[in-house]
Amino acid sequence: MTAGDMTRAKGPHSFSNAILRRITLKDCALPTFIVLLAFVTGLIEPRFWATENLLNLSRQIAPLLILSVGQAFAVICGGLDLSIAANLALSGVYGILVMNEFGVVAGVLAMLLSGTAVGFVNGFIITRFQVSPLIVTLGMLSVCQGLALMASGGLPIYNMPDAFIDGFGYGSLLGVPTPTLLAVLTLLAGWAVLRYTVAGRYIYAIGSKAAAAYSSGIDVRFYSMLAYTISGLTAGIGAIVLTAWVNSAQPLAGAGLELRSVAAVVLGGIALTGGSGSMLHALYGAIILGMLSNSLNMMGVSSFMQTLVIGLVIVTAVILDKLRRGQTPGV
């Protein structure tokens, strides 16, 4: 009893202390980089700060951010989801096919359902047969692409209700574009699940040391499966945003986003070995990657060059991350 009273008495004090202790130089590095990047781009091209460009930028980042949230779950749990972008494309195709038959609501639900189902299958295979997430999701990438190509006949589906395009692609609420809004909501939900739920705690534990979680009485299979299922769900959300925004369901939509989402979470500081990092890191990573494209575009850098620069940034980030952890190479 006394212990509890004491904690409460010094609660605010120790809380602010805890926050101060947590904010270290390395936590400021990425936000500083983001501000700096924005500042430099603004100097070279003042149009960067135009409201229209910023809103457009946020809409551009939305699909990557949404997938990064899902990717973060898989990575923190000690795995990886390479099928996430192909899952997005498949869910988009299925969703639009359903939408044209049964209406917008049914179509949106179909996208979410399809994404979740693929994630569940990933999780089921990985946990049931104890196989490498890398290989399973890589295989699933191809499976999803194949299914999407078969369902669409290999061609983009442009035919979709205007209500869907207007609502999810170009609509806005209080001036905020719907894709941005959906991305932020996904991020907040993911953040809350990781930070405030038992499931989140277990996912961290499994990523940190699965054997320890198992012998502590945690249902490791169930919660690993949950992480991949959540990852799949974000692919469904991403499908809504991307399909509405580009006005078409493409069987190979979002190609490359799987690697960019992995890059985003690693760039943000979530260890690929699992067990650490937070949604904030996924946000930083997605913003930096998204902003780089936008900034380089505005600076008139060719898209070939952009690809190169982004690759270099990712590799540099990983090296910096390794150095920050103070590990010597070669061990």
Binding site: Y204, A205, G207, S208, K209, A211, A212, S215, G274, S276
Partner: peptide
């Protein structure tokens, strides 16, 4: 469990 390092602690947490 028997092995503190392998089956016990969550090193990142």
């Amino acid at each position: 469990a028997i092995d503190r390092k392998e089956q016990g602690i969550l090193p990142e947490r």
